[in-house]
Design a protein around this nucleic acid. Structure first.
Lengths: 332, 332
DNA sequence: TTGAAAGCGCTAACAC
DNA sequence: GTGTTAGCGCTTTCAA
């Protein structure tokens, strides 16, 4: 079997309590005995059993992360931010894909709780009342990232999506575009759907431009769906001369869809994306897009979670990170 | 405190052993008592403690995944394949970024072992002799994915990178290109560097084309580095009329770098990438590239790991998945 | 500064 | 079918 704390104690001729103390950096150990123990550990290649430790101490130094889809260019960047900060604070991460599926999300929540994680990060999905009920019952802190609960009941890290969308569309409108199209996710999606759409509409109102339903296309976030939906927009009586897309990937779809039809970007149609994923500079023309600090959202949410786990003071449980627009070449 | 198996036993007026039996689906329980227990569990909202269970059973149903960088479009796709199969077999995943850094990798290996994972998936990094020593000492099975050990000592899932590179370059050469450039990763990288470069050289030899050092540029896998390195290739006395890139992202860099200089793709220069990431169809012209089944590599490696963990028979510890070339519009 | 001993919540013999 | 009991490897009082 693998060597235990008892073996080390015996090898060093001390009690297991003393071994435990040196392993845990407890200062109440005479340097000489500390050395004895350290040597024994080395000789025996002792490696503490984190499961036993977790059972005894009720801390696993592991946090659960529920993420819609790790293969998404957006969420994987978030995940990286999370993992970096987790490492910094000595936590490991159990990563689970939810596909934004409610049942899966709730199931995962329970699985993670069974595994005794010290905290949970919930990313991206819609927070329904059913979610809220489960989250409330959680025995460990939960923080949301890139999503939020209507009532602001749970700590959450986001940008102001509606305002960001407003800014982008407003920019277009101020340049005298009369017909600005929008590519959106499903409106049930609080972030990529509802909030951004809301910003779009508000910008229209604010600029006294009538809302035209035929100018908004609901897509499923994929590049291909954007190309397809474009057909609809182009059919509108109010053919768009500018398009705001809820994600970069769909913006690329729009750009290429336009180009494939011989429509020039930005000369004939200007395009603004959202997220500033690495894709944005990997297209020609390079994409003007709303910059959302993805890595930071992950990092900040993990940091906030550590505060909850360590019972530190929380100054603000709902943090709104800044956004801006990166002007590149899909706009004039 | 949270409710334990004792509470349930009391509530149901049975012994804890019986509760354990129903929780674990042991058939030796009378239906009537099973129901009693199930009811008690429901009433008390009992949730088994996986840590205690792990300590007692020596199984955590958790596997460790050491991955170079989860935010990479390539590895995140692999990770998705891993997670899906893990879920299917009821495992969770502890995800750790290594940045292909040897010390980090070895440190992570130890951390995961401390956490008593049931198995480990090691992705992408170089396997030095030092790695091998640590891997050999692992108390749980380890499988490699998208990397391998020279001696084939450890189970590994890959495609034949050298052959794949050969195929791509050979295709170019057969079309009478005399000067085929290559964008490669560092040659220490067994996969993206050495193997692909080897395939490149072999294709040259096979077609009786002299190797010209000025035609290969070592990049750091980024889009930008590819754009930069392009300058060097274009300076060569044997200006390339075709370019083979070790990754799609660098291929995009090359394409845009060429286009920015007014060089047309594929008319003036043909380009072939590697991986067939989602980027490949998100560029114009769409990218001809070597198709590597990323998701499958993840899925198959996780499946193989489950076999090791469950002591199933292994037919082949070194699996080589098929590759092919997707011909699109960066080649004529 | 060190040791003894009581759990942590569960599984897995073993007995009945 | 069901209960008893001895660990799993560690942390954490409490004494000394």
């Amino acid at each position: 079997m693998s060597t235990t704390i008892y073996d080390v104690a015996e090898e060093a001729s001390v009690s297991m309590a003393t071994v435990s103390r040196v392993v845990n950096g407890n200062p109440n150990v005479k340097p000489a005995t500390r050395k004895k123990v350290l040597d024994a550990i080395e000789r025996l290649e002792y490696r503490p059993n984190a499961v036993a430790r977790g059972l005894a101490s009720k801390k696993t130094t592991t946090v659960g992360v529920i993420i819609p889809d790790i293969s998404s260019i957006f969420f994987s960047e978030l995940a990286r931010g999370i993992e970096d900060i987790a490492t910094m604070y000595n936590y490991n991460i159990i990563l689970c894909n939810s596909d934004k599926n409610k049942d899966k999300e709730i199931h995962l929540l329970n699985t993670l709780l069974e595994k005794q994680v010290d905290g949970i990060l919930f990313l991206g999905g819609e927070i329904t009342e059913e979610h809220a009920e489960h989250l409330r019952r959680s025995s460990v802190p939960v923080v949301l990232a890139a999503t939020f609960h209507e009532e602001g009941e749970f700590p959450a890290i986001n940008i102001d999506y509606a305002q960001a969308a407003f800014d982008a569309v407003d920019h277009l409108l101020k340049k005298d575009h009369k017909h600005v199209g929008m590519l959106t996710g499903t409106l049930e999606d609080p972030v990529n759907g509802y909030q951004k759409f809301k910003g779009y509409k508000e910008a229209l109102e604010n600029n006294n431009v009538a809302f035209d339903e035929s100018l908004v296309a609901v897509c499923d976030y994929t590049y291909d769906s954007a190309i397809e939906s474009l057909e609809g927009l182009l059919q509108s009586n109010n053919k768009p001369t500018a398009i705001f897309s809820a994600t970069d990937e769909m913006a690329l779809g729009a750009i290429h869809g336009l180009q494939d039809r011989g429509i020039r970007v930005p000369e004939d149609v200007e395009v603004i994306g959202f997220d500033n994923t690495r894709l944005a500079t990997m297209v020609r023309p390079t994409l003007t897009t709303v910059v959302q600090p993805m890595y930071d959202i992950g990092a900040v949410s993990m940091r906030l979670l550590t505060k909850y786990m360590d019972n530190e003071d929380i100054d603000e449980q709902n943090v709104v990170l800044p956004h801006r627009i990166a002007y590149r070449n899909t706009t004039k």
